[in-house]
Computed example of a mutant assay.
Amino acid sequence: MRGASHESLARAEEALAGVTVSEGLGGELFSVAKLLDGTGALRRALTDPARPRDARVALVQQLFGGKISAQTQEILSVAAAGRWVSSRDLADALDQLSIEAEVAFADGRRKLDDVEDELFRLDRIVAAERGLSETLSDRRIPVDARQELLGGLLQGKADAVTVRLAERAVDGRGRSFAAAMRSYQVAAAARRNASIATVRVAADLSEAERTRLATALGRQYGRDIQLNVIVDPNVVGGVRVDIGDEVIDGTIAARLDEAQRRIAG
């Protein structure tokens, strides 16, 4: 998001930080985001800059009063009072807030590390199982059926927050399952004021190697680094690290490619 939308999201995040996060808060925020996705008139009414701010907040009370929790209504009112570059930015913001609410709930139960690890492992399992990946992404199959499939796979094996986020990734709101899962992992890391580094290696790293690499990256970037290690047989020696839009490629293949480019002039 940019400009006014970014500032409005920040104020809504402050409102989220100021409420007691219940287990259902994330789900309610996501439900409102989905409602706005499918109701253009309501989306425009809540973001119309020509409509006074108090009128937009009053509309939230009129439509949602008694139907959602007081915490959700407070956050939605702050969001509706903001200014949005695009009417769709409001729904996107509520989606983001719903993720942050789920992460905050996990953190409050001291389950954030577990959830983060479960999200990463599930992401890798789905990526490796082509049939499962195609089924979860097949829009010809009803969303409820795909969510039920995933919920069955996770039952008794993952935290409730992980299950809810995974089922939400199936819905996607226009994003792929992988992209949604990635955004959840980023939100979990951000909760700990950390960044995610995706590390690709030919052979798994020991705990000592992981610690040294995380420490070195932390010094370089000035913040805590959460390592997501992927064993990739296509990596020929060395290690490749992706942090956001930055890539540190120390593999043998990369060094050979660079040498060939220099030889070619």
Score class of each variant (00 low, 15 high):
Leu59Ile: 13
Leu59Trp: 08
Gln61Asp: 01
Gln62Lys: 12
Gly65Gln: 09
Gly65Leu: 09
Gly66Asn: 07
Ile68Asn: 15
Ile68Glu: 05
Ser69Gly: 04
Ala70Leu: 03
Ala70Met: 08
Gln71Arg: 08
Gln73Lys: 12
Gln73Trp: 10
Glu74Asn: 06
Glu74Met: 11
Ile75Tyr: 07
Val78Gln: 15
Arg83Asp: 15
Trp84Lys: 11
Ser86Cys: 10
Ser87Asp: 10
Ser87Cys: 13
Arg88Ser: 15
Asp89Glu: 11
Leu90Lys: 00
Ala91Trp: 06
Asp92Ile: 03
Asp92Val: 06
Ala93Tyr: 00
Leu94Asn: 00
Asp95Trp: 03
Asp95Glu: 03
Asp95Thr: 06
Gln96Val: 08
Gln96Gly: 06
Leu97Ser: 02
Ser98Glu: 14
Ile99Glu: 13
Ala101Trp: 13
Val103Asp: 08
Val103Phe: 12
Val103Cys: 10
Ala104Gln: 10
Phe105Val: 04
Phe105Gln: 07
Phe105Thr: 04
Phe105Ser: 05
Ala106Lys: 14
Asp107Tyr: 15
Asp107Lys: 04
Asp107Gly: 14
Gly108His: 14
Gly108Thr: 08
Arg109Met: 11
Lys111His: 12
Lys111Tyr: 12
Asp113His: 02
Val115Leu: 11
Val115Asn: 13
Glu116Ser: 12
Glu116Pro: 10
Glu118Asp: 02
Glu118Asn: 14
Leu119Lys: 00
Leu119His: 00
Leu119Asn: 00
Phe120His: 11
Arg121Ile: 02
Leu122Ser: 06
Arg124Val: 02
Arg124Gln: 11
Ile125Ser: 03
Ile125Ala: 01
Ile125Val: 09
Val126Asn: 08
Ala127Phe: 02
Ala128Arg: 12
Glu129Asp: 08
Arg130His: 14
Gly131Asn: 04
Ser133Asp: 06
Ser133Lys: 13
Glu134Pro: 01
Leu136Gln: 02
Leu136Asp: 01
Arg140Trp: 14
Arg140Ala: 06
Pro142Val: 09
Arg146Asp: 04
Glu148Arg: 08
Glu148Lys: 15
Glu148Ser: 01
Leu150Glu: 04
Leu150Met: 10
Gly151Met: 01
Gly152Val: 05
Leu154Gln: 10
Leu154Arg: 11
Lys157Ala: 01
Asp159Met: 07
Asp159Thr: 11
Val161Phe: 00
Val161His: 06
Val161Tyr: 02
Thr162Asn: 07
Thr162Leu: 02
Val163Ile: 15
Val163Asp: 13
Arg164Leu: 13
Leu165Tyr: 15
Leu165Gln: 05
Ala166Pro: 02
Ala166Trp: 03
Glu167Gly: 10
Arg168Leu: 05
Arg168Met: 06
Ala169Thr: 03
Val170Gly: 15
Val170Met: 11
Asp171Ser: 09
Gly172Gln: 04
Gly174Asp: 08
Gly174Gln: 05
